[in-house]
Design a protein around this nucleic acid. Structure first.
Lengths: 147, 147
DNA sequence: TAAACTAATTATAATGATTATAAAGAAGTA
DNA sequence: TACTTCTTTATAATCATTATAATTAGTTTA
């Protein structure tokens, strides 16, 4: 039921006084239905046919709006551009070192790590970020064949 | 004994056939002695007085060299520029949401999380990245006083 | 030691993601 | 309708990082 996420998101936005423009609707929908953690440019390109006049700035602006509303998270890795992820329930990412593919996986939150960190540093902890890196099945297979 | 780290690092570099130039020596030393996870530009500025002719490219080039030798890690957050961290023993970072301060803390590796991720996704796991976010004691205090 | 080769540095330009700005358009309200 | 506010668009600006070419320094070999 991907439609549920979209509807909920629109309600959340409306409640925080954000207008639902066609562009915003389309960007949100793309984030939810394409399960690909896209870059801003990928979103821009994907919606080009439907919105030939849309500006890149609109994509960035609205991604920021969505982040402020807590609907979207920005993922920054070493490479050039950020990726954006529609927030559903908490999950972590595993990323292929070879091809860059990002796959979701679920794991209970690391409260114990947060507690320890708070204890030894004196910080008041808000959140954490965890990513696992490795080789995805496709790339692993390709490496075996190359031998 | 910060000198030990520097000496070890220089040995490591020499063993992988990397020449020890004055610039490299200075960049490494700065990374080790300043405990501040600096950006490339901060390193560049800090060494300006000693190396008035040094190019920014040299800083970037050598940070890359150090990374390839496993001596330095690049830390990428949401903001514009990467930060660089001299690798001693494994540790994690806790980052202040208010002022951006980065503090190290130690915690046993999360092998169990890696195992689970490998199991559910079929990836061959290489590594992981974990950061905790919160408010540092200084900023927390400042907030209390403001009330 | 000098010549020859290789690696490193410098200076500068190019790239490319993101942000700022100003003008035009759309929606909401009195 | 006029007014206000928000949003989008088009474009230019910013800024971190990388690429390039020329110069310099270090290492090797004769």
């Amino acid at each position: 039921m991907p439609g549920v996420f979209l509807k909920d998101a629109l309600v959340t936005l409306k409640e925080s006084g954000v207008r639902i423009t066609p562009q915003r609707h389309a960007i949100l929908e793309y984030l939810i239905t394409s399960h690909t953690h896209p870059t801003a440019d990928e979103i821009y390109k994907a919606l080009e046919s439907d919105f030939p006049n849309m500006s890149v700035a609109t994509v960035y602006n609205n991604l920021r709006v969505f982040q402020n509303a807590g609907l979207v998270k920005e993922l920054t890795y070493g490479d050039a551009s950020s990726r954006f992820d529609f927030v559903t329930h908490d999950h972590y990412h595993i990323i292929c070192d070879e091809c860059g593919k990002i796959v979701d996986f679920h794991h209970p939150g690391l409260e114990e790590v947060e507690r320890l960190a708070a204890h030894v540093t004196g910080f008041k902890v808000n959140s954490h970020r965890l990513e696992v890196y490795g080789t995805c099945p496709d790339c692993g297979e390709a490496q075996n064949e190359a031998k």
